[in-house]
């Protein structure tokens, strides 16, 4: 097995490079993805090696980027679109939700739309407004899209390539504050399927569900909880639509307790869906209600306040305490 220690950003970069090498129909497009290599350098060096026709610096128009990516897919290409920041995806919402998600159905299965939309998401980097949002549920709520979130370099490397090979549109969330995290990357190609969750820390007392940037926070919470003899089973959901509910249910039936953690506001958030499904399927196994830890029902605050807004280790442990003491 060929492994290397890479940052999450570099792992994505290498994953994109593999995808471009493997299939001449793969394209990378977005704002500043060429010479600059993207504002987070995720596409660094790709234009130099694959040319301007395959790594395309686009005009600054998100709807235009996604709309033309759809057209390129209709002509047989596999575009990977970069939306520069989470808060900039909304100008493209119509093309994603109304066009990209529904076009296959509208053709009664005649066409495929293998378009990947990469979105750096979440807060914690001290950014100005519109640069720290977690818009995942707008897309998980839209049939026709697949929504995934990577949390670590190994998954970043594998999941971006799996997303590119997928014949459906994939919304690919990247945890921007974890871009610089380092970990070994498995280049073997023998990876967990894209739509499967992974138990990242086995445990027996409480199931903690997370994805993207919150996985690391929950792993830290699991280490801290051990000091109090509490064993947290942390599951990285990885795929939000479809959801690997079986892995979740198996765990909750064992632990009887569950906490869901995400950066997005709790109200109408992804945790609501998880809590409802777990209540329905594990009703008699539950020792406590499913609790949710997330952002407040407010706009994302100015960055001097974000540490209060974002779930952290203590807020996760607080919820763990509450489900344990219910």
């Amino acid at each position: 097995m060929s492994t290397d220690v890479l940052t999450l950003g570099k792992a994505l970069n290498e994953g994109l490079r593999r995808a471009l090498e493997d299939d001449p129909k793969v394209l990378v497009m977005g704002e500043d993805v060429g010479k600059l290599g993207g504002v987070f350098r995720v596409t660094d060096g790709l234009q130099k090696d694959f040319g301007e026709d395959r790594v395309i610096d686009t005009p600054l128009a998100e709807s235009g980027i996604v709309g033309t990516a759809i057209g390129l897919a209709l002509r047989g290409y596999r575009p990977i679109v970069e939306i520069q920041f989470d808060g900039f995806v909304f100008p493209a919402a119509d093309q994603i939700i109304t066009q990209l998600a529904k076009m296959r159905l509208r053709s009664q299965g005649a066409i495929k739309l293998p378009v990947v939309i990469r979105i750096p998401c979440g807060g914690g980097i001290g950014a100005v407004e519109h640069h720290s949002e977690s818009p995942e549920v707008y897309f998980t709520h839209t049939a026709g899209l697949r929504v995934v979130a990577c949390s670590n370099p190994a998954d970043a490397y594998a999941m971006i390539q799996q997303s590119v090979r997928c014949d459906d549109p994939v919304i690919f969330f990247e945890p921007k504050r974890r871009y610089w995290d380092k970990a070994p990357v498995d280049r073997s190609g023998e990876w967990l399927p894209l739509d499967r969750a992974r138990v990242v820390n086995p445990g027996s007392d409480v199931t903690v569900l997370a994805y993207g940037p919150m996985v690391k926070t929950c792993l830290e919470a699991a280490s801290a909880a051990l000091e109090e003899d509490r064993s947290l089973e942390v599951i990285d959901l990885r795929s939000l639509n479809p959801l690997d509910i079986d892995t979740v249910l198996e765990s909750v039936r064992r632990t009887g307790r569950c906490v869901v953690v995400h950066e997005a506001p709790v109200f109408s958030g992804y945790g609501a869906e998880l809590a409802a499904r777990i209540s329905e399927k594990c009703f008699y196994h539950l020792e406590a209600p499913v609790l949710r830890v997330g952002g407040f029902s407010t706009p994302y605050p100015a960055n001097r306040l974000e540490e209060h807004y974002l779930p952290d280790l203590d807020r996760v442990l607080d919820a763990v305490d509450r489900v344990m003491e219910w």
Binding site: G71, R75, Q95
Partner: peptide, 19 residues
């Protein structure tokens, strides 16, 4: 939806160009 297809057409044309 009014006008959405003009972008698909443009992308398709960019594909023809890349062919």
């Amino acid at each position: 939806v009014i006008g959405s297809q003009t972008l698909h057409a443009t992308g398709y044309a960019m594909g023809v160009q890349r062919d």
